[in-house]
């Protein structure tokens, strides 16, 4: 799976979560860039990603992610470490 595919999948997850089809994520997107992406929806998003890709982030990681790109990279790394 490529970074682009993961990003596309992330965009769909967040669109479903916030009910807003105009959302387009890029690697540099931050939470404050997206209207309605509050701390609860951030946790929801992270858990939805975990379920979709079958990975699990550490608590410290979840707190340290600054951009969507960082979550994409970490997801790819976790997928490589334990292929489904």
């Amino acid at each position: 799976m490529t970074a682009g595919e993961v990003l596309k999948s992330f965009t769909q997850i967040l669109r479903d979560l916030l009910g807003d089809d105009s959302i387009v994520l890029s690697p540099s997107t931050r939470r404050i860039d997206v209207s309605g992406w509050d701390s609860f929806n951030y946790v929801n998003f992270v858990v939805a990603v975990e379920m979709k890709f079958g990975v699990k982030f550490g608590v410290a990681e979840v707190e340290s992610f600054q951009t969507v790109g960082e979550i994409v990279q970490r997801t790819l790394a976790l997928l490589q470490a334990s292929p489904r």
Partner: peptide
């Protein structure tokens, strides 16, 4: 950082895994 967030993450995982609605904005 060390109690609330880990607890929320754990509870959200559990709740979503059971297919229940999470705490979304809408």
């Amino acid at each position: 950082a060390y109690i609330y967030n880990p607890l929320l993450l754990w509870l959200t995982r559990r709740r979503l895994a059971r297919g229940r609605p999470a705490l979304g904005g809408r």
